[in-house]
Amino acid sequence: MIEKAKNIIQNYNGKPLRIMEVCGTHTHEIFRLGIRSLLPRQVDLISGPGCPVCVTPVNYIDKAIYLAQKGCCICTFGDLVRVPGSESSLAQARAQGGDIKTVYSPEDAMLYATQHPEKKVVFLAVGFETTVPAVCIAVDSAKKNGIDNFSVLTAHKTMPAAYEALKGSADVFIYPGHVNAITGNAVCKELTKQGVSGVVAGFTAEELLMAFAVILTLYEKDTPFFKNCYTSVVKDEGNIAAQKLINKIMTPCDSTWRGLGVIKGSGLMLKSEYSNYDAMIKYDVPDIKGSPNPACKCADILMGKCKPPQCPLFGKVCTPLKPVGACMVSGEGACSAYYQYGENL
């Protein structure tokens, strides 16, 4: 299969096309595996907004820092720690005495709260449909067990509304495999009826080569298409138990995406019966506006309007060691991928 896929990709002689890999993990794996070097010149790869840290707005970091300064213990995935807020980062807040802990999972944060009843533990709940079930499990468990010193600061995002906003940014989308593992494929199939083509792809070399070969084969037929190229993990109906849990605990809300602005109904927040676990309400967090660095092009990069090397800060004042924008910090960010693997690949 690999040789067959490779031949299709390298011998593609059709019309030019723009493929957006929505997911940041795809961006990194495509670079890391050297797949870019196999693609013919008329195939342009665009990195999309599927990096949770990258699309989280600056004012979210400001709110987390506010909570740390008010004496809360902030539990977070590691890649949020160095993301710059308006004036500071969680790393700087920690250096100034803030209680900032890196955890592997929301459940670990909840368990930490159980072991430290004297602390006000706040988990930074960012991420897409992939991460939401883990947060729901932690909140549900905290409520069942009466763990009142645990709460979450939510900035969850969901993909369906974002796809609407991204229409026209690319000719074909590579949909995020593990989001679809939760949500299923119905939204992607619906997009096909609206003329939007795409495939769900996995993350190994074999899975990605098959996805590209399928795209290039079907694109030449000039009919909108959808194919699930990650059948080992993604079922058409998704993970029903996870969907039920999300619907029990979360409700849709408008959400601000770095680069895309406010997208109606593209976020998830806790339902009112779980408000005791909502850090915004519990600790009366003010509506901090936030001000991103105006020279940073993260917003345009997330929309596929420009590539990282076109940002005047890229590789100069903005590097993984001293990042200016979120896309350079995150292990899933496009700037980080271009910096790590080279923009000319």
Binding site: Y104, G127, T130, A134, A181, V214, T217, C229, T231, V234
Partner: peptide, 22 residues
């Protein structure tokens, strides 16, 4: 498949989609 400490899917067998469309 595990994400953030939670299993999100059981890994099954792959269908060769490329062979299906060729």
């Amino acid at each position: 498949m595990v994400h953030a400490g939670t299993a999100i899917a059981k890994i099954g067998s792959d269908i060769n989609v490329l062979d299906e469309i060729l």
